[in-house]
């Protein structure tokens, strides 16, 4: 048997990662940030429904393991610094 979880039931441990659903698997398109246009308002960071956006100093970046590709960051960005790009095979 190949097990994914170290636990007997649907429990989660912060050390192993509290997420038991890799929502990045759902994604059909991914956000790509343009650092030159980013105004550093942080709205994408605040609005991301999966909370997967990190501050990379020059721009904000989505953690693709959990980004589900909803595009809300593109919609909310006042500087039009983020674009969605189709994932290959979608």
């Amino acid at each position: 048997m190949r097990f994914h979880s170290p636990f007997e039931g649907p429990w989660a441990d912060p050390e192993a990662g509290l997420f038991s659903v890799r929502s990045g698997d759902w994604r059909q398109q991914r956000p790509v940030a343009n650092g030159a246009r980013c105004c550093r308002c942080g709205l994408c960071f605040l609005y991301c429904p999966t909370g997967c956006i990190s501050d990379r100093v020059t721009h904000f970046e989505a953690e693709l393991e959990f980004c589900k590709g909803c595009g809300l960051c593109v919609y909310i960005c006042p500087a039009a610094a983020i674009a969605m790009r189709a994932e290959e095979g979608c």
């Binding site: 979880s5 039931g9 441990d13």
Partner: peptide
């Protein structure tokens, strides 16, 4: 001391895994 979550949302193969373990 060691925070954990009980009753996580589960889909796909992990669901089958917990059913198997049950």
């Amino acid at each position: 001391e060691h925070p954990m979550t009980f009753g996580t949302y589960v889909v796909g193969e992990l669901y089958a895994e917990y059913r198997y373990k049950h």
